[in-house]
Amino acid sequence: MPIELARTGASATSGRRGRPGLSLPFRIEPADLILPLFIVLMAVVVGLIEPRFFAWSNILNLLRQMVPLLIASVGQAFAIISGGLDLSIAAVLSLAGVAGVLVMQDHGVVAGILVMILTGLVAGTVSGAIVAYLRATPLIVTLGMMSIAQAVALILSGGVPIYDVPTDFVDAVGFGKIAGVPTIVVIAVATTVVGWLLLRKTIFGRYVYAVGSNRSAATKSGINVSLTTMLVYTAAGTAAGICAVVLTAWVGAAQPVAAPTLTLEALAAVVLGGVALTGGSGGIIHVIYGVLILGMLSNAMNMIGVSAYYQTLAIGIVIIIAVALDRFRRKGGS
């Protein structure tokens, strides 16, 4: 029989000894500084090649360009941290944009905006309910939702862009400013802050990490994993709805196939920033890193005059590098 040893209290209570250097109130590891340094380095290099990069007008432009990607990436981050992913973001965004603009024409701007956000919320919740309660793979479910949302957007719009967008909406949201900052940038920042609050400051957020870290353990410790999973896709869909508001206002049109590469770019930004594809780790700060890198890359290529085809090629390469980095990071970490 295993012998039980008498334990003296001394050895048990002196747990804080023997690990020098780990008593900081927060942890900074060299790995956490790589991306911020890379971003600064990238900005300097781009600025040296093209001094206009640091012009105020370009910085505003850069911020505006990053808005849709940032909002979509915050939504995507919820799905990925929970251990899933959402492939329907761009399609849901298209549907929300088309539906919202159609409603806007008859019932006013506010109703239209609400419809856009609600469309995203409902589409995400439907995907989430199927993933959570039917235990279906998020890859397939959101791929199906992508097809459905895209089809409905094409049907509603007749396959052509709707340019008949109220000018009030375009002026106020698309080109308006709040205290000197473009309205769409304010919307993106607000979305990001809410995303951060949800993930880091609420019980729901803690559950999202727990589910992504170990689904079985989360279930067995009494967490409502199904509800958490469903709400994760609700969040991702809502982000797609907010994205539709921003994009229709800025473009001044509702495209039936709006920003088709946005889903993958958001996935790339999230992973590039350091959110593990396996779930359970990473946060909004990592999303911001990823969006900054992709956004600056795209902005720099535009300024230097790289053709759209090569830009797509570059994004593809970056996505693959991001996934490879994700692997290396976890190899190094374990």
């Binding site: 990490y209 870290s213 170990n214 353990a217 067995k220 779930g279």
Partner: peptide
């Protein structure tokens, strides 16, 4: 398999 939340902290594992 069934208990640990490996990517979370000691505190988060305790209170989840």
């Amino acid at each position: 398999d069934n208990c640990l939340l490996p990517s979370l902290s000691i505190r988060e594992n305790l209170t989840v």
